[in-house]
């Protein structure tokens, strides 16, 4: 088990924030860390990696990484780290990038095969696409057979189709290597597809911890289809009222009765919900 119990004061733009994490992670678990920017997600990963200091204790499968003033050096932590930027050695080929971490040609060959990069083993990073570079970063992170894989929004610079490919690779690699993984992301579909568990941070505190379905499915009573939006306009049409609501990049309309129309105001944040029986799906054209 990984047992994290840390405190750290973070300097925010307006006020200081206390990062306070008490988290236990089982071996082989895939945990998504979610939350708004500035909630402490990246700092948590950096503390785990040993790149930042913190008060408290971190023990990883019986080994103390942090204990009062004693800190285990970064290079002794057996961590794989995948960042948003690829951080590959530009003067080394894909294969050399992997072998630089560990001289294990067999593992390098196997990882490149799993991620369908075998044909690019001799290429320099400059000749790879963003998605390919990120897959190389992922392979490289696994070359040390780490005890813990840390990923900080590894997909955020990629286009949607590349994201899908990388998600697929991550699932395949997790199935094969069963590396305990902490994964920072904002994307609910990513969390749902990849993680067994999601921890939501807000202002440095853990505010939710559960299965992706329990945490992500926003419901209101028995209403299963629920989205957050903002009322842009309420107008009367014949004897009914229509609220125009912005949800993300989309505008939707919701019919209200007179009583409801009076209880909402333009600009108000609202939850748009309906039962799971009402919405219909159609393929995107």
């Amino acid at each position: 088990m990984i047992d994290i119990n840390i405190e750290k004061t973070l300097q925010g733009s307006s006020k200081d924030m206390q990062l306070s994490i008490n988290l236990q992670i089982q071996e082989q678990e895939f945990v998504a860390i979610s939350g708004k920017s500035g909630s402490g997600k990246t700092t948590l990963l950096r503390v785990l990696a040993g790149l930042e200091s913190a008060k408290g204790t971190i023990s990883v499968f019986g080994k103390r990484w942090l204990d009062g003033h004693h800190t285990l050096a970064v290079q002794k932590r057996q961590i794989g780290f995948v960042f948003q930027d690829y951080a590959l050695f530009e003067n080394m080929s894909v294969e050399q990038n992997l072998l630089y971490v560990a001289q294990d040609k067999e593992l390098a060959r196997h990882l490149l095969e799993l991620t369908e990069l075998s044909s690019m083993a001799q290429r320099l990073p400059a000749r790879l696409s963003g998605g390919q570079k990120q897959r190389v970063s992922l392979c490289r992170a696994l070359m040390k057979r780490p005890k813990l894989l840390l990923m900080d929004e590894p997909f955020s610079a990629l286009d949607p189709s590349m994201r899908l490919k990388l998600q697929h690779d991550i699932l395949r690699l997790h199935k094969e290597f069963a590396t305990t993984t902490l994964f920072v992301t904002h994307d609910p579909s990513e969390i749902y597809k990849l993680a067994q568990r999601v921890v939501v941070l807000e202002d440095g505190k853990m505010i939710q911890d559960g299965s992706p379905k329990d945490v992500l499915l926003k419901t209101k009573g028995s209403q299963k289809f629920s989205l957050q939006g903002e009322i842009l306009e309420i107008y009367k049409a014949d004897v009914i009222y229509v609220a125009v609501v912005a949800i993300g990049q989309q505008i939707v309309e919701v019919v209200l009765d007179g009583h409801e129309a009076q209880s909402f105001i333009v600009g108000q944040g609202v939850q748009v919900s309906t039962k799971a029986f009402a919405p219909t799906l159609s393929a995107l054209g």
């Binding site: 014949d238 004897v239 009914i240 009765d257 007179g258 009583h259």
Partner: peptide
């Protein structure tokens, strides 16, 4: 009732509860 050009809002009494049907 509230009578519109196309729709009517019908105010109902179900015991103590007030309901509206469009």
């Amino acid at each position: 009732f509230e009578e519109g050009s196309l729709l009517w809002s019908v105010k109902l009494l179900f015991g103590e509860f007030r309901l509206e049907s469009i």
